[in-house]
């Protein structure tokens, strides 16, 4: 019983670590993108200020579904983050870091957000939610094929074991290099997952006024921001563990994490936003073809670098 409690406490610690890490890195990234845009950029801890400011504001409600959905989203995401291994040996729930746990649990948070946004009754929010779900459907398929290829090759779906397997092969024996086509697909899908341009059709401020978030303000928006940061933590960590060989220690994890997130941010800062139909068409065309080709090459021909 005490063990269980301690594990839950450790899990909350992981989520908190993820939040602090991602929020700081997002702040640093705002500075980096600012430099690309020829300006100085905000303070590195600006994201913290923003979130705490939002939590200190008063807010209005649009019915209980609206409030409950936000709490469900935040709770669902914290619940998901608790299972995330930080390094290949450091995790809150050893043995429960299966890839599919994240796939299922992350849906709870997304669902909560969708429910809450629809509950606000704003048509822009409904359009945003619809677009978010459509985009999700688009990027999940190629990403899943690549991940299933890895699982088929290694015979395990545990993140930490996958990390240890990659580390055992020596330096840079990472799946992003071993399966180059799959790596490209994964990077593109990750951009879709994180809501980076050009795939961020659902938070398009110029079209649908920030989509699902249109009616949020004050505390609810603050909670959604926390939820967003933890979601990004989960998704980038998944990428690090699946494709970049996990992490031997916490320093490697932070470095890899920072590198991935910054690279994606820099890439997205020179792209515009596509339309929703173009996003779906794009994901069902090139990434899907690449992913299937990669699966065919890797599984039937056995060509793995």
């Amino acid at each position: 019983m005490v063990d269980m409690l301690l594990m839950i406490l450790a899990g909350v610690g992981v989520a908190l670590f993820g939040f602090v890490l991602q929020t700081s890195i997002a702040g640093v990234n705002r500075k980096i993108v600012g430099r690309i845009q020829k300006r100085y950029g905000p303070k590195w801890y600006q994201e913290f200020l923003d979130i705490f400011k939002l939590l200190s504001k008063r807010s209005v409600t649009h019915g209980w579904i609206f409030d409950f959905g936000v709490i469900m989203a935040l709770g669902g995401i914290i619940g998901t983050a608790m299972f995330m291994p930080i390094t290949s040996s450091l995790m809150a729930f050893p043995g429960y870091d299966n890839f599919f746990i994240f796939v299922y649990l992350i849906a709870v948070g997304m669902l909560g957000m969708a429910m809450s946004a629809s509950g606000s009754g704003n048509p822009l929010a409904s359009i945003g939610v619809m677009r978010a779900l459509t985009t999700m459907l688009a990027y999940e398929v190629p990403f899943m094929i690549v991940v299933l290829t890895i699982i088929k090759l290694t015979g395990t779906s545990s993140l930490s074991e996958l990390g240890i397997l990659q580390q055992a092969g020596g330096d840079f024996n990472w799946f992003v290099i071993a399966l180059p086509l799959g790596g490209i697909v994964a990077v593109i899908s990750l951009m879709g997952m994180l809501g980076k341009k050009p795939f961020v059709t659902y938070i398009a401020p110029a079209e649908i006024a920030s989509g699902p978030m249109v009616e949020y303000g004050g505390k609810q928006l603050g909670m959604l921001f926390i939820m967003h940061e933890i979601t990004v933590f989960i998704e980038v960590s998944l990428f690090v563990h699946l494709f970049l060989g996990g992490a031997e220690n916490i320093l490697f994890f932070i470095i890899k994490y920072f590198a991935v997130y910054t690279a994606l941010n820099i890439m997205s800062s020179v792209y515009g936003r596509l339309k929703i139909d173009q996003v779906v068409l794009f994901f069902y065309k090139w990434p899907l073809i690449l992913a299937v080709t990669q699966a065919f090459i890797a599984i039937y021909l056995g060509w793995v670098i």
């Binding site: 600012g34 100085y40 950029g41 905000p42 303070k43 949020y216 928006l221």
Partner: peptide, 13 residues
Amino acid sequence: ERLGMGPMATPRQ
């Protein structure tokens, strides 16, 4: 943005 100011999309935010 140095001062932490930024544009927002909707009045609620």
